[in-house]
Design a protein around this nucleic acid. Sequence first.
DNA 1: TTGTACGCGTTATCAG
DNA 2: CTGATAACGCGTACAA
Lengths: 341, 341
Amino acid sequence: MNIGEIAKRSGVARSTVSYALSGKRPVSEETRRRIQAVIDELGYRPNAAAKALKEGRTHTIGLVIPPASRRLTDMQLGFVASVVDAAAHADLDVLLSPSGGEHDRSFERVVGGRRVDGVIVMEIRLEDDRVTRLRQAGLPFVGIGRTSRPEEMSWVDIDYEKLIANCVHHLADLGHRHIALINRSEELVAAGYGPGHRAQAGFTRAMAERRLDGVQTCCADDAQSGVSCVERLLDERPDLTAIATLNEAATPGMYHALAQAGLVVPRDFSIAGVSARHWAENLHPPLTAADVPADELGARAVEMLIRLIADPTTPHGHLLVAPPISLRGTTGPARARDDRS
Amino acid sequence: MNIGEIAKRSGVARSTVSYALSGKRPVSEETRRRIQAVIDELGYRPNAAAKALKEGRTHTIGLVIPPASRRLTDMQLGFVASVVDAAAHADLDVLLSPSGGEHDRSFERVVGGRRVDGVIVMEIRLEDDRVTRLRQAGLPFVGIGRTSRPEEMSWVDIDYEKLIANCVHHLADLGHRHIALINRSEELVAAGYGPGHRAQAGFTRAMAERRLDGVQTCCADDAQSGVSCVERLLDERPDLTAIATLNEAATPGMYHALAQAGLVVPRDFSIAGVSARHWAENLHPPLTAADVPADELGARAVEMLIRLIADPTTPHGHLLVAPPISLRGTTGPARARDDRS
DNA sequence: TTGTACGCGTTATCAG
DNA sequence: CTGATAACGCGTACAA
C-alpha cells in the first residue's frame, strides 16, 4: 500500500494523490473523494522514511538521557515526561538515546544518521563532548543544563548555585551554624556535572557570607547511599544541625538515617533541598525545597528547539530558573544535637 | 555529505563505497582505505531515511507508554529503562509513543507510517484497540501485559492474580481476618486494565478460600490518594488489620495515613504488596512485597520482539512471572485495632 | 492533472 | 574478482 497503488486504484496520477493529501494544489472535490475512499479502504499511510528522505525533515526529535541502566531521578523523569508531552503536542515523535558515556553508538546513530530534526540533551557537563559533536554536526539542539560556556548554546537550566545558596541562607536565618551540603554522586561531580559544581560554588559562597562552618560531601543517587552518607556525617560532625541537598533520590535515606539516630525532623535537625515538587510533597515530612518546575523546563526546551529547527539562525535562547523555597516540614530553628533531652 | 560525494572524492563509483562499507562484496584493500580516509575526513554517515526506505527496516522499535502527563509508576519506569537498555544493546533505537487514550495521533504515526520495525506496548487492557490496530497493521509487537485473549499475541506479564492471592495467604497465615485490597485507579480499572481486574480476581478467590472478610477499593496512583484512601478505609472498617496492594505509587501515602492514625506498621497493621524491588526497599519500613523483576521483563520483551521481527512467523511467546514475596518490614501477626494500649 | 526528476543508499546485472 | 551502471523503494513538487 503505497501512493502508486492508491493512484492506480483511484485512476489518477501519483502526484494527484499527494496533492489531494497535502492540499498544496487544488484538487477537484470529485477526485478527492474518490481518492479518500480508496485510502480509507486500504488504510493507506504515507511512508515516513520516504517522506523524510524527500523533505529532509523527520518530524522527530532526539532526547538524550543518562544511560538507562543508571536510575533516573524523579526530576529527570519529569523532564522526560514533559519533553515527550510537549513534543506530542507539536506532532513530533521522540527518539530516545541513552548516552552518557564517552563513545556512544546510540548517540552517534541518532546524530550522524540524520534521524532527527533536533536534539534535547539532558545532564550536561561543564565540558561536554556531546555538545561539541552536535555543534559539529550542525544539528539544532537545546540543553537541559549548560556547559561552562553557556552563551554558545541554547539551554534551559536550574540555577543550582543560587538555590543552594538560598537553602544555606534559609537555614542560617533559622540559626543553623553547622551545615552539610549533600551533592550528587562522586562520579557525576568528577565528570564535571554542572549542577554538582554550581551547587558547590553556591554553598561555599553562602557559607562564607554567613561565616558558617560547613562540610561538603557527595552521595550516590539512591536511598541506601543517603543512609550511609548521613550516618557518616552525623558521626564525623556532631555539631551538624542541618543539611542542604540537591540529591533528591537520596533524601528518603537521609530521613531514615536521621530517624535511626533518634533525631526528629525538623525539631532536632533540618533539611532544605532542591527537588521536583511532586517528590518533595511525597516525602514525610514533606521536604522544604525549591520546587523545580520540570514540566515547564521541558516544554520550554521543546519550544526553543522547534524554533531553532524552523530557523537555525535563531539566536540562542537561555532560561535560568530559580524557584523560591517552599516551606514545608523539614526546617526549623537550630537546636544543638546534645541539647535534646 | 552523501555517498555520491564520497564516491566522487575517492574516484570510485557509489556502489563501490556502499560495498566497501557493508562488506557484501570484496573491495581491494587499496581503494577501501582511500574511501575510508575520505569518509573519516568528511565525517560521512549514511542517511538513515534512505537506508530505511531501501531496506524496509528502520532499526527502530516503538515503545508505547501511558500518556506522559500521567505520572509513570516506578515499575513502569523500570520497564522503560530496561527496554531502552536492551534495545541499545541490540543497536536498536527506541521511538516513544505516549498513547493511552482512544484515537491517538502519535500512535498512529508510529504504527501507520512504518517508522518502526516492531512495537512494545505497555499498560495493556483486557480489550485493547492498540493491539487490534497493531495486528491489523501486521506489525510485530510484544505486550508488557496481555489482553483477555492472551494466546493471540506475544507478551510478558506479571501474574497479579496469583501475587495478590499470595499476599492474602501470607496475611491470613499471620492471622489477619479483615483485609483490604487497594487497587490501581478507578479509571484504569474501569477501562479494563488487566492487572486491576486480575488482582480483583485473585483477591476474591483467596479471600473466599480462606473464608475471610475483605473489602476492595480503587485508589489513584499518587501518595495523596493513598492517604485519603486509607483514612477512609480505617474509618469505615474498624476491624481492618491489613492491606494488600498493587498500587506502589500510593504506598507512601498509606504509610502516612496509618502513622497519622497512630498505627505502627507492622505491629498494629500489616501491608503486603506487589512492587519494584527498588521501590519496596526505599520505603520505610521497607515493604514486604512480591518483587517484580522489571529489568528482566523489559529485556525479555525486547528479545521476543527481535525474534518476531527477524521472523514474523515465530510462534507467540508468553512469559508470566510470579516472583515470591520478599519478607521485609511491613507484615506481622494480626492484632485487633482496639487491642492496642 | 499528469509526467517526471529528485532525495540517497542498496544491490542486481553487466563489463572489464 | 573488481568496478561501474542502473533500477528500486516512496513521496514530493516542478514543469508541462
